[in-house]
Design a protein around this nucleic acid. Structure first.
Lengths: 161, 161
DNA sequence: CAATAATGCCTTCCTGGGAAGGTATATTCC
DNA sequence: GGAATATACCTTCCCAGGAAGGCATTATTG
């Protein structure tokens, strides 16, 4: 990125390209982190999106349920994507659907025992993996980073973030 | 994210889920930023990936050329993805291919005059957009963030980052 | 109590990019 | 110099997810 910024400064000295530093690096680090996180999901035949859904259900606590619209909102995806993720997980036997009794439009998605067991195993390894990655930073920087990103998320209108 | 972390703490008090704060927020902020940046590219009929390639060529300076492998490396994508991006841009008349004279395996990708003009216009608006987004942060935080992300990128092995 | 609007979920269509492998040229090592 | 290996680019196949719109149900408003 330093090189990229230098190149831009040389080519377009009329522009102040300093924002590229923060935004560009954020993208690159995000991509690298994803690359480090995916293999653990893949060992269980899951993608990032599948894990997201299962995690949403698991951390909701008993009875491990959520609606597709809630899942879509917390995962920042469209409703169509949520439908597909759920269908995939249902096929894999990790999740079930049932109609809501209070609202005829609503489906309730629930974790199966297999899904719950899978997550309980997987989360441990995932969290350990994240510890490893975050461990690359100075402890003080971790907190700084989380704090800065939280305020940015808020400014960007991410209610959940 | 705060809510997500609380939920995990309640459900799995045996795990230290503090890393989720930094990594989760980074993903969410990245997604939000992308959502803010894409419309400007879309106005010119480009996607993020197309812009990346054109930017790589433009900031390389005269004669605005690069090889597919270099493009792939700086954009952190596979060679197949690079081929497709270049083919798309070639179809749009923004880029040309020619064979390298020094190495028979190598293609040289170059910006057309149209491509160069497009980028010169687009970069201005893109940089302005990034200024707006980065402007949501305290000035001191911007530098902190860039510094922390740089060291993380290095630790993650991102030579370009 | 209609009539209209909003909500929730799903479907179809399309696109971007990864994985894996193919082919042609270059390089290395005897 | 020739065989083995590496490199560069491309091709094919596949899949995840967005956009747009459809259908059913619920909420709202007159």
């Amino acid at each position: 990125m330093d090189r990229i910024i230098e190149q831009w400064q040389r080519e377009r000295p009329d522009l102040d390209v300093s924002p590229l530093g923060a935004i560009g690096r954020l993208h690159r680090v995000g991509a690298q982190l994803e690359r480090e996180l995916l293999p653990i999901f893949a060992e269980e035949g899951l993608g990032q999106g599948d894990f997201d859904v299962l995690a949403t259900l698991r951390r909701a606590g008993e009875p491990y349920e959520a609606t597709p619209s809630r899942i879509a909102a917390t995962s920042m995806i469209t409703s169509g994507a949520a439908t597909k993720r759920i269908a995939r997980l249902e096929r894999a036997g990790l999740v079930t659907r049932r109609a809501s009794e209070s609202d005829g439009r609503v489906q309730v998605i629930g974790l199966t025992p297999e899904g719950r067991e899978l997550m309980d195993r997987l989360v441990e390894r995932h969290v350990a993996n994240e510890h490893r990655l975050v461990g690359m930073l100075e402890p003080a920087d971790r907190e700084h980073l989380a704090r800065i990103l939280r305020s940015w998320a808020l400014a960007l209108g991410d209610g959940e973030g």
